[in-house]
Simulated scan of single mutants.
Amino acid sequence: MSKELDNQEQIIQWFNNTYTKRGFWYLRPKKAYYIYLEILKAQPNQKLLDIACGLGRLLEASKDYNVKPYGIDISSVAIMKAKEQFPDFNLSIANAEKLPFENNTFDIITCIGSLERMINTQNALKEMLRVGNKNCKFCFLVRNSETTSWQFFKTFLGLKNKKGHQDAKNLKEWTAIFNTAGFEVINVFPDQYPLQKRLRRRSLWLKKVNYKQLVNNNEPIEKANEFLFLLKKHD
């Protein structure tokens, strides 16, 4: 077995174990996923593909937008559990580097918190471009390598999750990766869920937080724990 295949099997095993032991506790709540669909301006009957869909939380949120949901994940446990919860969804076990779909199939494509875990990022991005139609919009949440927590705990102390292929890059590096692959960056936002939780803590307990609305943040985007990219195919 090649080193790449061996690493892939290790990643699959880690996610299978994680979803077996932790299940939905491993994921953010459903309300945290609305923002991606809002940024994409999801419309009824659009075909949505969620890459590394896990247990289907984003696809669950997408039901409120009447899109046609598809999801793939390398974890057989994740897909099995997702199908138990959402039998009507189009879910399949697949690798992002070899998507089981025809060219130009999807209108919107998401990959939330998983792109940095893929072994060959460029191959995965090329596949996403292939299955997205000419007007397809893409939404990726990716980790920032320049945060204090990442540099100290993950890098200096060596606590990076190697079995789960945990990785991160800074804003400039992610932008270059997307540009090289053939994407055009429309906008970049800081990860919204931590800001939404902060807003809720600062508000009166009776005040509701609109999880579908972007939260303004005065900190430089470079300091965000994770980056939320909105992209399209390069013209």
Score class of each variant (00 low, 15 high):
Q151F: 03
K233H: 14
E219I: 00
L27T: 07
G71K: 07
N210T: 07
N95M: 09
F178L: 08
N144T: 11
G56D: 03
Q10K: 15
A61R: 01
N7V: 12
N216Y: 08
G164R: 09
E38H: 07
V77E: 15
N104L: 06
Y211A: 02
E226L: 06
R117M: 12
D235C: 04
A94W: 03
P194A: 05
K163A: 09
M1K: 07
M118T: 13
K126C: 00
F152N: 01
L58G: 08
K232A: 10
T180K: 12
S75A: 07
N170Q: 04
L125C: 10
T155Q: 14
L27C: 13
Q85D: 10
N187L: 02
S145A: 15
K31C: 04
Y211V: 05
F189Y: 15
K30V: 12
Y211C: 01
K21H: 11
K47H: 14
T147R: 06
Q8P: 00
Q122W: 01
Q151D: 03
F183H: 05
D64F: 08
P69F: 01
T18Y: 09
V67R: 04
Y26Q: 12
V215W: 01
K207C: 09
F153E: 11
F86V: 01
F178A: 02
N170T: 05
W205C: 04
